[in-house]
Amino acid sequence: MEILLENLNLVIFLLLFIIGYTFGSLAEKRHYRSIIQREAELLKLAVVTAEGSFPAGQVKESALVSGSAVISIDYFKRILATLRNIFGGRVKSYESLVDRARREAILRMKEQAHKQGAKMVINMRLETATIGRNANQKKQIGSIEAIAYGTAIVMNK
């Protein structure tokens, strides 16, 4: 017991490390499952980055649609990334974070377009913001903030 108290800092660190790992990977797995499922549902709604041109009389309506998501990193991954900073190379833990944020933002945009009855979204663009500031700094909230926007096209039947 005394040893535990003497190394309280280390104990807290390890505890956070384990909590971060368990809940972080659980949350990530759940998120990926939901992303894949919703992506499959919305597969019919095409999203392209190109600017399409349409013959006159084919388009009924067009509107800007957008979606955003802020995903934060967990304690475990943050430590991993800090370690990775020493040796350099791929920071896998951040890659999955960015991937999740972007895909979630695109999905939310698609959901909005789907609600409006759109058949496709053209000229999709992605943008990132920084509210939580740099993900790798101490006392900063490590988060990725993605915005996706595009023009939803409702076709004439």
Partner: peptide, 13 residues
């Protein structure tokens, strides 16, 4: 707090 376990930050979204 949420930063410990990761996931979406709804407030920021």
């Amino acid at each position: 707090l949420k930063n410990l376990v990761g996931g979406e930050l709804k407030g920021y979204t």
